[in-house]
Design a protein around this nucleic acid. Sequence first.
DNA 1: GCCAATTCTTGACCAGCGTCAAGGGACGCC
DNA 2: GGCGTCCCTTGACGCTGGTCAAGAATTGGC
Lengths: 240, 240
Amino acid sequence: MPASAAAQMLAQSRLFARLPHGEREALAALAEVRSFRAGERLIERGRRAEALFAVRSGYVKVYLPGATARDEHVIDIHGPGTLIGETAATGVGDYQVSAVALDAVEALAIPAEALNAALARNYDVVLTVMGAVTGSLRGLLNQVTELKMKSTAQRLAMFLVQLSPVQEGPAEIDLPYSKRVVAEKLGMTPETLSRSIAKLAPVGVTPAGRDRLVVADMDALAEFAGFIPDEDDDAEMRHG
Amino acid sequence: MPASAAAQMLAQSRLFARLPHGEREALAALAEVRSFRAGERLIERGRRAEALFAVRSGYVKVYLPGATARDEHVIDIHGPGTLIGETAATGVGDYQVSAVALDAVEALAIPAEALNAALARNYDVVLTVMGAVTGSLRGLLNQVTELKMKSTAQRLAMFLVQLSPVQEGPAEIDLPYSKRVVAEKLGMTPETLSRSIAKLAPVGVTPAGRDRLVVADMDALAEFAGFIPDEDDDAEMRHG
DNA sequence: GCCAATTCTTGACCAGCGTCAAGGGACGCC
DNA sequence: GGCGTCCCTTGACGCTGGTCAAGAATTGGC
């Protein structure tokens, strides 16, 4: 029965877990589990927001479409446990972005009316949704600054640091999706991603198979990611 | 008396104007009018959010500080009628950004506790604040894509279009602040801004005095701003 | 097991923008 | 009114990353 599956999803969601039981059940009763195949669109920029999606499995590309495929800009790749369309689904609004499934995706669709009713009824829901919204705002903030202030290799390094299961010492990192998609997420071309990986070799990053990277020392990688190359450290070279 | 001044400010604010009288009065009673001189900081990234600011007069630079002045990134320049610190002041939170007055600034400070109490009490306040938050989210979204997808000249053109009092035909546009600040807002250096202005000459933009630009045809400018130079129009040159 | 299609890599080239440096023009102070 | 300071402009140059193109490696179909 779909209702209980929805309730289970909501309970497992990091965001909705805090909600009181009754409110979660009420939302779950109106929510619907939906499946998408690779290439199917979940939401489309400019259309009236009908639902908020909570990704359960698979990956979803969130992007701003352009006139041509080349002009589109990828905002983020959303994996399990994330929300899509949260800003539009609160209040009256149109979707600000488009989203397409990269592989088989299962998501919980919470109708906008149900969400808005819950918002008006229960302040906990307000806090929950506002948390989600400010979270994505923070993500965008990071993206803006990273685009301006970091090199491609540094953005890749930061991506790996966030992805790694361990934060110090050696690590093996599996890319969650193809390199082409990684490149899109990081706002660069596949060619540049290849070269960026090569640039990380001096920091101790070596490819190991198609979608796995071995990092000798996560601390070194993290330092590289945050380090802005003012290159006064090159002083070593001058007196070397 | 400060309370009535605050109430007046709130009533004139585009965002708070919709609130019922009682709620506005309640907020105004707890709010405070504050003045800042050029260079004074309104909020500082990482510090606990104490208040939401509504800018009344003057301009405020909102930015992410870096290790050095060079590393800082300007998010936006806020003028009268805009909010600052809205995301942090809702719920528990630290300021995500810093903000500094560019000239003499007068702003209304609404304490975080007062705001949160109002949020919990009145759903209209929720809608109001959420509207502000999604608004800044939309702005960031635009910024991300413009950084990636548009040239410096196009970003300048878009800025001028937004600034212009008229949207078609000829127009005279006064820059609201110095070119150095304009360059910061547009995410480029002053040198590049100079060159970008020169690049707009073919579209009919000519400087007229230190901080004024004359545009021959706003439609042409707007088209230039949105147009992605795939340059298939250069075909003219080939068969010319 | 072989071939086609896709993904990834590598190289050569080029455009855009930041940087450094120098010069011109406007405003304010005395 | 003269002069210093700051803002803006202009030029030369280099680095980063996108583009085009070709080749290597991996996958999937039959």
